[in-house]
Amino acid sequence: MSLSYEGTIPSRPRYGQLTPRPGSGHLFVADGEGADAILALFAGPGAKGMLATTQIVYMPGPTGTDKSAELEKLGADIFFRAPDYSTAQPRLKRLFGSAHMGLQLYLTGTEGLIGQAQRDAIEAGLPHTAMQTEHRGSTVRRVQCVHCKGITENVRTDPFVCSHCGLNLFVRDHYSRRLAAFQGVNIDAEDPGQVPPQVERFA
């Protein structure tokens, strides 16, 4: 699945394509189909020499895609499979805490994964413009309910029901790097009960 940027707004994140960059070390964080972006990078020119200083932190995607085996075969210095981001997070924070400038960060997979890893790297002091990102796989969204502040993962429909407070929310393209989430706003506040049918916008 690929993202469309048509008709969107400037706060909606845009993603690029991972390319090898010079650096003292290379940290890849990926989920699901993000594995394909890493495999593509190492199949391309200028990347083989990086393997000895590469660490890959990988977790299955929200739709169950798990390409651990293929990634492990790449022969990176370190390969680590986590069941999900919350499990990988302490490891990443530990890595950032002891890393030096020159470490290259490559984030790929779903927007939720990219956003959360980016948020944690920013907190560790890296400018958000410093990391490479590439979207792969599912387009489901991580959405914050602006009313109860609860985050609903893997949102597929618009509108959707907040998994915390139960309000009907429409999904905006407005995006917060700090929260690593899109914004959900009550759709029937002015006319309670008048909720348009849910449309599957993200898959």
């Binding site: 707004i9 400037p10 706060s11 602006v146 905006r172 407005h174 917060s176 914004q183």
Partner: peptide, 17 residues
């Protein structure tokens, strides 16, 4: 508009809507 949501955004981002 929500400060909690927008804090940390760049100029064109918080004016995006």
């Amino acid at each position: 508009w929500s400060l909690d949501f927008d804090v940390g955004m760049a100029f064109h981002e918080w004016h995006a809507p």
